[in-house]
Design a protein around this nucleic acid. Structure first.
Lengths: 334, 334
DNA sequence: TTGAAAGCGCTAACAA
DNA sequence: TTGTTAGCGCTTTCAA
């Protein structure tokens, strides 16, 4: 139905060059005659034209596509990130292609390969393994990658992330200021560098305090899921019989599972329980106890990551290898 | 870094045909000599090969790509849908490309155009306007489209959706069975066909009841947002001074905003309030009142939509134009 | 069993 | 001001 350049050229009697020029709005630059232009434009208005992105990519080795690889698009944090990135991309004439890895390094490698095969101009990646060696050189040049949200130690690629260490320090400090004597940090596996950095922040905020060893502790589960959170609380209760007065949750899933376990085992959430989390969840507003929440700035993360990637795509050198985006602490008191 | 077929052919001394055949695993079909095959495979093992999807798409007019267009990927329902579809696609050798429209018909048309230009093999679409005329014929043939979640009246494309009418009937019936005498349905605009069908279901479930006109009513807001829900409750309270004993919420955002308004205006959620919603939200477990929830089957929706699209792509004719996927009603009692 | 060659639709260098 | 042409990397028909 829609025509190709060749067909338009044939039907109007002009050459492919002329048609291309008119269609790409370069008729002035190349001084196409108003007549030719009018004829071609009229033809297009009547019959339509849709450019063939595959042909264009092939010719230009440029696809105007950005790939996004995240562990789980159904996770609210990544969904918001994707939404923000998509808007940025659209505004800049790129299209965003998203893939989830379910935290599988295998799937991550496949996705990277796939993106390279499709000739995406660059990728934004939340890695689930260290990028020791970038497996994915683009066809022509290397395919630019900027990592977002996570930074494995020793990685030297471009990274945009919240400062998880400082966030954890901050929220821990607030719990202590609010009167928490004992705090347990319930979290997923420290194999995730975000988790690791939060644990370090928690430790940094507590290490110098009197009796730190008995008052503060970390419990982690291999499963960063509701079940994992549930099990963590059960183990905690089994080992010490009672909850500490402060609890920090390493992820939303752990948080939800833990809260469910507390209600199941204790009948209700203790109103005095001081809680800290690293992401907002609507349930916080319905909890009977105070909750301190670190809110990440998904828009800011997306902005920086996209800007860095755009520079890389333009072969410029971004100013910073590692960019930290500020987080906010919001207190919800029942 | 990774080689092209031409380079491999040159370096191994075989022709491009032979190389292609080996690489695509057709060496048996075309009885390539084991020797040629071994040499080429060894070369690839050493130097790597990455196929160029653009070239392939151009040649085959087939991209192994499926486009997904939803109003908002940050909405949990669509995020889950996207996650499910993505898995299906990956398993079948397709890649899923997702775009959000923010309910803008303009953006929707652009996205469709863009997908057509990229030669996606098909698209799954949650439309925000009736598809009266399909604007997007593919280049070669029409680009297959299956609509998901929503069906505008009069549309005749392939549609996979939950039965919103029946869902609304069901949840309304349950509220009444649980003792609700008066019920108000708070919802976004009926311009959204999903909303419209739910309103109809609500009306169908209540119309025959005594004093229906005074006991049951619908209030809708143009804004399907938390603010919209908040305003709806304020208006309700302002007009009748008190809440009905039953409230049904047309969307999660309306639900959250309305609950917030109730807490603000009344100080707390009345424990006797019978509530109904069309999507699960974690806050439900922390509410003091009974809530009846329709849970949609995102996996089921994704399965059917993908299966239908796959048939269309294979030029087969799907059995059903309109497929309803069952929903569940789950009761949460405080 | 293998190779040559055309052509998908587009862009751009060069020619007229 | 407009036209010709080569070629991006791949698949596939036909020939050898």
């Amino acid at each position: 139905m829609a025509k190709t350049i060749k067909e338009i050229a044939r039907d109007t009697g002009y050459s492919r060059t002329t048609v291309t020029l008119v269609i790409n709005g370069k008729s002035d630059d190349y001084r196409i005659s108003p007549k030719a232009r009018a004829i071609i434009e009229a033809y297009v208005a009547e019959h339509g034209y849709r450019y063939n992105q595959a042909a264009r990519s092939l010719k230009l080795a440029r696809s105007h596509t950005v790939g996004l690889i995240v562990p789980d698009i159904a996770n609210a944090f990544f969904a918001r990130l994707a939404a923000a990135l998509e808007q940025l991309c659209r505004r800049q004439g790129f299209i965003l292609v998203t893939t989830s890895t379910a935290e599988s390094p295998e799937v991550e490698r496949l996705a990277l390969e796939n993106f390279a095969a499709r000739g995406v101009d660059g990728v934004i990646l939340t890695p689930c393994e260290p990028r020791r060696s970038l497996p994915a050189g683009g066809r022509k040049a290397e395919m630019p990658i900027v990592q977002i949200d996570r930074r494995f130690e020793g990685d030297d690629g471009f990274v945009v992330t919240s400062n998880h260490f400082v966030s954890a320090e901050t929220v821990t400090g607030r719990l202590i200021a609010a009167g928490a004597r004992e705090i347990t940090f319930l979290t997923g596996s420290p194999a995730n560098p975000t988790t690791l950095q939060r644990i370090r922040g928690f430790e940094s905020a507590t290490a110098q305090l009197p009796d730190a060893a008995t008052r503060f502790s970390v419990r982690s589960s291999d499963q960063d899921t509701e079940e994992g959170g549930y099990a963590l609380v059960e183990a905690l209760l089994d080992s010490r019989g009672t909850l500490p007065d402060g609890l920090i949750f390493g992820s939303l899933l752990i948080f939800h599972g833990a809260m469910r376990a507390i209600r199941t085992r204790l009948g209700a959430i203790p109103p005095g329980l001081l809680a800290g989390t690293f992401a907002y969840s609507a349930i916080i507003e319905y909890l009977p106890n105070p909750v301190f929440v670190i809110r990440q700035d998904e828009r800011g993360l997306a902005d920086h990551a996209f800007a860095t990637l755009a520079q890389l795509i333009r072969k410029e050198t971004p100013a910073d290898v590692l960019t930290y985006v500020d987080t906010d602490l919001v207190a919800y008191r029942a």
